[in-house]
């Protein structure tokens, strides 16, 4: 297993206001697979992903990623872990507004020992002609593709996508999803994706359904549907 998280617990607050966000969650994902976490708003999806990505800490439980126990890392080790292994994609793109497209991609290339070439990345995401634009001058879908480019430029082992299509319309969403699928195929990048759109589950190897901090169902797909064919 590439990712295997066991008995994850996380709560915020204390006493009466204590909010148990994750209750004994187990999930795992094989190397090179796409995993989807499905669940309604507030169910703890982002919290779970943040812990796997090493930006938040567990209360208890273990998270093994590529044979390392991320849950046991200190701050420096977590930084190193995110730097080397993890790419992030967010619902609202989170591009740096005063950097151009290529500069936004450089943000991550800059801390990688062997980043992919900028032109190569731009052609993968189809933005060669827009590399000197500022984010504000791009459509939502284009911005998300810049975010994808930024996440994969350092060729991470793990790509974490928190509702990557949450702010996009249907057509654009499908473009972005097929881009992710292409990356998964070409680079063998393991992808963990959050969504509350059940249809997206069809392009994943495994789907975890989360409700109120508990895994309610695990679906393993034998047949992976190409993203272009997903409908909703």
């Amino acid at each position: 297993m590439f990712i295997s998280a066991e008995s994850l617990c996380k709560s915020y607050g204390s006493g009466d206001g204590k909010n148990d966000v994750l209750k004994n969650v187990d999930i795992s994902l094989e190397k090179g697979h796409i995993g989807v976490i499905l669940g309604p708003s507030g169910s703890g999806k982002s919290t779970l992903m943040n812990m796997i990505g090493g930006v938040d800490r567990v209360d208890s439980g273990s998270i093994i990623v590529d044979n390392d126990n991320v849950a046991g890392f200190d701050d420096d080790a977590l930084t190193e872990y995110r730097r080397k292994n993890v790419g992030f994609i967010f619902q609202f793109y989170n591009l740096v507004p005063n950097l151009t497209v290529s500069e936004n991609i450089e943000v991550c290339a800059n801390i990688s020992d062997s980043p992919l070439r900028l032109n190569e990345i731009l052609s993968i995401v189809g933005l060669e002609d827009k590399k000197n634009r500022f984010p504000r001058e791009l459509s939502g879908g284009e911005q998300q593709r810049v975010a994808v480019a930024r996440a994969i430029v350092k060729n991470p082992k793990l790509l974490l996508c928190d509702e990557p299509t949450g702010a996009l319309d249907f057509e654009t969403s499908r473009d972005v999803l097929s881009l992710l699928q292409k990356i998964n195929r070409e680079f063998g990048t393991t992808i963990l994706m959050i969504t509350h759109n059940i249809a997206i589950g069809d392009m994943a190897h495994v789907v975890y359904k989360l409700r109120s901090g508990e895994i309610t169902e695990v679906i393993r797909n034998d047949e992976i549907i190409p993203a272009e064919r997903i409908e909703w």
Partner: peptide, 13 residues
């Protein structure tokens, strides 16, 4: 602030 936060997430020291 947001950019600083992003830098940190991406693994900047």
């Amino acid at each position: 602030k947001k950019t600083i936060s992003l830098f940190k997430i991406f693994g900047y020291k």
